[in-house]
Design a protein around this nucleic acid. Structure first.
Lengths: 203, 203, 203, 203
DNA sequence: AATGAATGAGCGTTCATTCAT
DNA sequence: CATGAATGAACGCTCATTCAT
């Protein structure tokens, strides 16, 4: 029972920390903000965590960041198997499957923190690294068109920017859309946009 | 000579401030960071500026932010006059003219600060406002297709995200490309990408 | 209990602030002086007050300064009603009534700060203004003698000095005498001195 | 010639220092204030003086403070020889002789600094000490009346206050009157006031 | 020798962390 | 255990003092 209560408080802190970190960023977040959000005292937080860093890397652990990276690898790799026609009539396209969406919606704060509000943390390069991997995968997937494009335009960097912003758009959707359905709808729109855009560009 | 030297130091501080503010944001920047970057002492900065705010709003003045806004208005409004065919064979398309590019390249840090690293400054809503305006203009430009799309998909938000990211991509290019030529090349790519994407989406 | 403690600390700070401000003046007072006098840490003061100014104008509020001014108006105006004979055999003379003395003794530091140690505060002109008012009142009271004296001696300034120093003597008494009785006794002496002096001068 | 010039600059600094110290007090005075007043550069001041303290105790030397004290001793002691009748028809009374007035007018800033604007300096107790001496002298002079008064009223402190304020009034006159004549005129008034006051009190 | 730009110690203030209750 | 008051290190800024020219 005591154990239960203790666990409950920890969860409150965790959720409060996620909320506040996602809203104000690491540096902009005061311990007192988290305490207020969690409905407990400042001092009590230190019964559960030994520092601001400890809270941060517990609620947004490095292995979660790696999971996201792996998931991205898996999802992006899956593109190879898909055909372009999927875009318009198939919801299974790219990232758009319920399981995945549910996952990112459930972990929206964590993801936003890792890729968006990461000033002062280890994740400052997270977005860059994710993009690097995605672009590499896309290269392999659309090798012919991609190489041709890059060869002709010498613009590997444009690809990087474009995929970085595909991530960015996804994050923005997570930031404002709260339900799986909403997120799904917006993601569909930006994926159509992206597929037409990237296909047109590589043509 | 003394005057020259003094002017030189001020320029050093300005450049150092731009560099550090663009990298660490307003709040993340310590006066000592700027001093170190400028190669002078902390106290000496206060011979040239009377506060951190003074430095910030001198190197990134509000009327510059307004210039950018006006320029965006002008540029985006110009879309109305253009036809889609311009995309592929005409460099005059959208933002792509030398004068404009040279301007944004010259002012890259300033622009990055206003739209990217603006926490704790008056510019916190700059990106949102710019996007709001652009979307409104685009609505008028592509009224029929736009209304149809939003009507069918109820996804005004996707449009907002897409244009926000058009800006974001431009900023990312500015962040990494240093020469007018590079910026121009990358901008062309992402504009082709965007035009195909938006046209495909609204179809 | 906690509430009690908190209130106690605030009172400690207030008293410490009054003591130190009265001794060293506003500018000469460091937050660390107040902290030391109050027996607490520097940072802790900021749990109770948000700035040095906040401390100052809380312990010496502007409306207190106005009360003093009003009280002086009232007391000095009362001179008109009194006759000179009161001097020697009547304690009701001028400022000398228990209620008033008790008030100024209770608020000794505050009064000293307002009229004596006011560099860098809103009260820099408090003494000058009080003197101006008193001289004006006295002029009306002793109009004939006063005009004659000033006319003959062209020495309005001497009157200003004399009343300024009547205030000054009162302040000095407050500075060193701690009890109502002591203050009363000394005030009586200086009032006798003053009445003989001013009467002799105007004769 | 160079020596002459150097001496001239030193005098400028001295005069500037006196002016500014008298106006703003020791702590309120910046080296740059003195430099500006002297019409030279900040750095140059350090060719003539090695610190702010050095300037201060050069322009207001401790032996000058002692001279003033001695002069007061001499002047106050002279009271013994005078009779009360001097008050009204004799300008030689007490401090009122040309030589003395000319001296204090000439050294007005120094005197004001020692007795008035002495926060943060060795002279913080100068006024108190001067008063102590004067009161002691007066005690001897008017021994009979004084002892009687103090005996009856137990108010040694009132005497202290009264003489302190005689000094204070003199200082205020020095502060605002610039010519020997003016100072003389005002001093006469306050001396009449004082003699009537003290005589009345001791009666 | 003169200038005024440069330095850094110190004060006011904030906030992560500790501790008395 | 929980609380929130207390602490002190660190940042923004000022100004006495030093130094390059």
């Amino acid at each position: 029972m005591v154990q239960y209560k203790k666990e409950k408080i920890k969860e409150n802190i965790d959720q409060a920390a996620l909320t506040v970190f996602a809203k104000k960023g690491y540096r902009g977040t005061k311990i007192s903000d988290i305490a207020k959000e969690a409905g407990i005292s400042v001092g009590n937080i230190y019964r559960y965590y030994k520092s601001k860093d400890d809270i941060f890397y517990t609620v947004v652990p490095e292995n979660f960041a790696e999971s996201i990276r792996s998931l991205l690898v898996e999802k992006v790799s899956a593109i190879k198997e898909k055909k372009f026609e999927f875009i318009e009539d198939n919801n299974e396209f790219w990232l758009l499957n319920n399981e995945f969406i549910r996952f990112i919606v459930k972990n929206r704060e964590r993801i936003l923190i890792i890729f968006h509000n990461n000033k002062g943390t280890k994740y400052e390069n997270a977005k860059e690294e994710a993009v690097y991997f995605i672009v590499r995968t896309v290269k392999n997937c659309y090798r012919v068109q991609y190489d041709q494009f890059v060869d002709v335009n010498k613009d590997d960097f444009a690809m990087k920017i474009i995929y970085e912003n595909l991530i960015h758009m996804t994050l923005r959707i997570l930031e404002e859309a709260k339900t799986v359905e909403e997120v799904m709808k917006h993601l569909k729109s930006i994926n159509v946009y992206h597929m037409f855009g990237i296909t047109g560009l590589l043509k």
